[in-house]
């Protein structure tokens, strides 16, 4: 469903992504694993179009979307959940969801606030609360819900567990699994494999802007040397 080939991205003179390549199949959950600064977030921003890649191809549903405007990429069915949440602090929960709303997509059951409140019951109890007055976990759920309002076929989840209390992380993992069960394709970015463990089917390990290893989660578990070399703190 999503295939990244030879992707290069620069910030000024710094060469961040260097021939990055990976694929995500339909209905699959894939995780980009790597240390802080490995290029996971840049990869996601390049895919959604917030950062302009210098070269390379990003095929989504067979179409090359590299270099397109973010709103076009989003409308073609790609959802993006940023790492630092970025809820609209002055807007209420309902208004945040409204910003994300896009027309229903063929073959997908459209997301409504009511459906999202089943997935995240917390949000349903604070419909009129401004985003800025919610806890970190609530904000994280709101960003995911907001992205789902666009009825994406694939979501990019950039470190959804970052900075959250263990209980909340658990709830988050369950919600993401529920989405996966619905058939949503997921590309996750994580620093350590623990959170990804229960969610992802496959992993791509990223180091210094390159994809250095790729395989199933089971293979990663078995490969002690890869984990020691690229993922240990």
């Amino acid at each position: 469903m999503l295939a990244v080939h030879g992707l290069n991205t620069h910030y000024g003179r710094a060469h961040i992504l260097q021939d990055m390549a990976f694929e995500v199949g339909a209905g699959e959950a894939m995780v980009l694993l790597g240390r802080n600064g490995a290029g996971k977030s840049t990869a996601m921003k390049s895919i959604i179009g917030l950062v302009q890649p210098t070269s390379g191809r990003i095929l989504f549903g067979g179409r090359d979307i590299a270099g397109e405007a973010p709103h076009r990429i989003a409308r073609s069915g790609l959802g993006y959940v940023p790492e630092d949440r970025r809820v609209f602090a002055d807007l209420t929960v309902m208004e945040n969801l409204e910003v994300g709303r896009q027309p229903a997509r063929e073959g997908l059951r459209p997301w409504t606030p009511a459906r999202l409140f089943e997935l995240f019951p917390n949000l349903g109890r604070m419909r009129d609360r401004p985003g800025g007055r919610m806890s970190g976990g609530e904000q994280q759920m709101l960003t995911i819900a907001r992205t789902l309002m666009g009825n994406p076929r694939l979501v990019l989840l950039d470190e959804p567990s970052e900075g959250l209390a263990p209980v909340i992380v658990q709830a988050m993992a369950e919600a993401i699994l529920a989405l996966k069960a619905e058939g949503l394709t997921i590309l996750l970015a994580e620093q350590n494999s623990h959170f990804a463990e229960g969610i992802a089917d496959r992993a791509t390990v990223v180091e210094k802007g390159r994809a250095v290893w790729s395989g199933t989660m089971a293979a990663l578990r078995a490969d002690e040397s890869v984990r020691a070399q690229y993922l240990a703190l």
């Binding site: 179009g49 917030l50 973010p70 709103h71 409308r75 609209f88 896009q102 666009g150």
Partner: peptide, 8 residues
């Protein structure tokens, strides 16, 4: 930026 990433 976020608004754009949400398809607006």
């Amino acid at each position: 930026e976020m608004v754009a990433a949400l398809g607006v």
